[in-house]
Amino acid sequence: MKITRLVVHCSDSPNGRDDSAADIHRWHIGQGWVGIGYHRVIRRDGQVEHGRPDYWIGAHVVGHNSTSLGVCLIGRDQFTDAQMQSLERVIREWKVKYPDAEVCGHCDLDMHKTCPNFDVKSWWSVVSDIDEFNRV
């Protein structure tokens, strides 16, 4: 599987409610899927939970599942500092394995979505620029 995109999502559950990968797994089963569609889930406290193994095709963005990995932040549009730190760590780990993969939000691949309700490309640009600055 050639990974070309690392896609950030949100659970769109109420801000402050601490859902888990197991909860999302149940929701997705209820929709008739074989299970959770994301590869990682980041809870409100920053804990990273595994969903699908990275080698399984995801079910998180129509038309791009076979070439992407998906990470889901729990919440709608107010994410904790711990979540954002964990998101950075997950993306960095994936970028080691897939250095040419584009970091983007679900909304960047589906104009009918607002998920994850922030500009992932701008966020990643700032985060990765800070890393470059610290290496100099």
Rank of each mutant, 00 (worst) to 15 (best):
S68Q: 06
D131P: 00
S13F: 10
G35F: 03
K113H: 14
G58V: 03
R44P: 00
S86K: 05
V90W: 07
Q78Y: 02
Y55Q: 09
G46H: 06
V126F: 14
E102Y: 06
G30L: 05
V48E: 00
E49I: 05
Y98P: 00
W27G: 00
G70C: 08
I24N: 00
H39M: 02
D81T: 13
C10W: 03
R17N: 12
R17I: 14
W27E: 10
G35N: 03
K113T: 10
H112C: 10
D45L: 09
T114C: 11
G63M: 07
R26M: 07
A22Q: 14
A22P: 02
G35T: 08
V61S: 11
Y55K: 01
M84Q: 08
Y55G: 00
G105C: 09
L73D: 02
V103R: 01
V103M: 06
D12F: 07
Q83I: 04
R5T: 10
P116S: 13
D100H: 12
Q47E: 11
S13I: 13
A82Q: 14
M1R: 12
V41Y: 09
R44L: 15
V127T: 14
Q85S: 08
E102W: 05
D129W: 12
A59P: 00
C104Y: 13
V71G: 01
I29L: 15
L69G: 00
D131I: 11
V103F: 10
S20C: 04
R76I: 07
F118S: 09
S68M: 03
S13Q: 12
G30A: 08
A21V: 08
E93K: 13
I24E: 09
V127K: 12
H64S: 04
R92N: 10
S20G: 04
V103T: 12
D108K: 02
T114I: 15
M84L: 15
E132R: 15
M84C: 02
K95N: 01
R17M: 13
S11H: 07
R92Q: 12
S11M: 05
F79I: 07
F133H: 12
V103S: 04
W124E: 11
S68I: 01
N65F: 03
R92G: 01
F133E: 11
R52Y: 02
A82T: 10
L69K: 05
H39Q: 04
D131H: 15
E132S: 15
K113A: 14
I57N: 06
D19Q: 13
Y55S: 08
D12K: 11
H60F: 11
V96Q: 12
C107M: 15
A22C: 05
D23H: 12
S20T: 15
C10Y: 05
I24C: 06
I57H: 06
A82E: 12
L109T: 01
V8T: 04
Q31N: 06
L109N: 10
V7Q: 00
L6S: 02
T114V: 13
A59V: 05
G63C: 03
A22E: 12
S125H: 15
D18I: 07
E88G: 10
T4C: 08
D81Y: 02
N15E: 04
V41W: 03
